[in-house]
Amino acid sequence: MQIRVVEDNGVKVIALAGEIDMHTSPVLRKELMSLVQKKVTPLFVDFNEVSYIDSSGIATFVEGLKGMKSYGGTLKLVDIPERIMDIFSFAKLDKVFEIRGTLHDAHNG
């Protein structure tokens, strides 16, 4: 998994690539929770280049969302590939997370 934190029109974006699993999710958790501790909002996560996610990766995002809600923050998941979206839907998390098709969509609401 590769992880980059970039800015897009003034918004912090975590851009992920590769596989998020039990081995790599602790790195993601560290990065995500450090932004949560700084009370960053809004925060976008770009899934465009993510090829795989398991339950440990999903748990990381649930934890991040809960942390952000504690200070009224907004977390948006962007450009999720279809197979990964299927996992979020099965876990009923498509109704919990704010999911947007593109970064442009995420900026616009």
């Binding site: 339950s55 999903i58 748990a59 990381t60 649930v62 809960k66 099965f90 876990a91 998390l93």
Partner: peptide, 17 residues
């Protein structure tokens, strides 16, 4: 419970589905 949104507890659902 899939409606009880919290970290963890999903893996077994993925296996059984």
């Amino acid at each position: 419970d899939l409606d009880d949104v919290r970290p963890g507890g999903l893996g077994i659902h993925f296996i059984k589905r």
